[in-house]
Simulated assay, not measured.
Amino acid sequence: MTFEPGELDRSKADLAETLRTLRKRAGRTQVRLAQRVNMSQTKISNIEGEKITPSLVDVELILRALDAPSSLAARVASLARTANTEWQDVWSQRRTGLEKKQNELAGFERSSTVFRYFLLSMVTGLLATPEYVRASLAHIPGDHSKAIAKKLERQAVLHDTAKRFTFILTEQATRWPYLQGSAMAIQLDHLASVSRLPNVRLGVIPLSGHMPLAPLNTFTVYDTRVATVETSTGAMVFRDHRDISAYLNDFAVYEGYASFGEEARDLLSSWSTQYRS
């Protein structure tokens, strides 16, 4: 499916209007529909008022309760999937301030319990040293002191033992020379240190052996609710269960190729030694 950025915004309004129109044509009140689909009337009202975006399961239940014809149901389900996808371009993020993006990520971290990070090309902010964080924003014009402070502040979530984190980094992500040699060695040592936290599993996929897959993007899955996928010009946010399941499946495959524990720390130590030399 091809998504146009403007289409993603319009689809939410279109979905709400379509569901509202179908309900009225079927002669059902919000209260009656809510009873048939085992939802609250408030939720139905919020869906029709664009205050919340219904999941595909919600939409399918509503369409079934309204006896929507199969041809129409397919079109509305497609609209629902589009509505559950969000595009965040980097230029909008820069205009509104990079700290706003950090606040959004902090919100995901507060509301989630199980985190899965697949890191293809660089270290994520939760695992980065202050120097690495500063370097990651250095190419963007302007004062980013607030965003840097927020990135570093977010790292405290790693010490919340009620949450579980799995990080999978490719060798490229850990070794890409983003900093000068000694600073890169410190970053690699920091990864090894974080890997010892009791609620953190940190794995590394070395560039050796055979791996019959080629990952295309860095992505993160929060519980089983949200998946974010990064590109060079922005990020896609998926809430459709089919998209999330696909990324969970990919993550499980990459997890099988990763080295964890002492084996991962041995790799990180050897790469750190190379930078120091």
Rank of each mutant, 00 (worst) to 15 (best):
Y247S: 10
G49I: 02
E263S: 15
F118R: 03
F115E: 08
D9L: 12
D89K: 06
T2I: 09
R242F: 07
S121H: 12
L213C: 13
G107C: 00
I44D: 03
R28L: 15
S78A: 05
L137C: 05
E255G: 07
L268A: 14
W91P: 04
D160P: 01
L8Q: 08
T218C: 11
A68E: 01
G209V: 07
T29R: 08
E230V: 04
A156S: 09
L66K: 08
Q88R: 03
A147H: 00
E109S: 09
L98Y: 02
F115A: 09
L105P: 03
N217Q: 12
R134E: 12
R164S: 06
T124A: 15
S55C: 03
E263D: 15
Q30G: 14
V37P: 04
V76N: 10
Q35H: 08
Q41V: 11
D240K: 01
E7F: 02
V221F: 11
P54A: 02
Q172L: 04
I168L: 01
A258Y: 12
K100P: 01
A192W: 12
D189F: 00
F118G: 03
Q35D: 05
L197Q: 05
S193E: 08
M1K: 13
R25D: 15
L61S: 10
D89A: 04
K43W: 09
P212N: 11
R239L: 07
S277H: 14
Y254C: 13
A192F: 14
E255V: 06
I186D: 12
M211I: 14
H139L: 07
I244V: 13
A80W: 04
L61I: 02
Q35M: 06
A227P: 04
A264C: 15
V57M: 05
T18G: 08
L98M: 02
A128R: 13
I244N: 10
S277W: 12
T174R: 05
I62Y: 04
A173T: 06
T220S: 14
I186R: 15
G256N: 09
E131Q: 15
E263Q: 15
L72C: 07
T42G: 11
Q35G: 05
R116I: 10
D9V: 12
K12C: 08
E109K: 12
D58G: 09
L188R: 10
L72W: 06
K101C: 03
R95Q: 09
H159T: 11
E99W: 01
D243V: 04
Q274R: 15
R134S: 12
L56K: 10
R75N: 07
Y275V: 03
E86D: 00
E17Y: 15
V194M: 12
I244R: 06
R116A: 12
R164V: 03
R116Y: 14
D266W: 06
S195P: 04
R175E: 12
A77Y: 01
L268H: 14
S71H: 09
L268C: 11
T124E: 15
S232H: 10
L268F: 13
M39V: 05
T21C: 10
L8H: 05
L120M: 09
V253A: 10
G125K: 03
T53P: 05
L79V: 04
Y132E: 09
Y117I: 06
E99D: 01
S208G: 13
A147P: 00
S245N: 10
S111F: 07
A227K: 13
R75F: 02
S112M: 07
L119Y: 07
S269Q: 15
D160C: 04
R242A: 09
A80D: 01
Q102I: 01
L137E: 06
N217A: 08
T129N: 15
L152C: 11
K51R: 04
L98S: 00
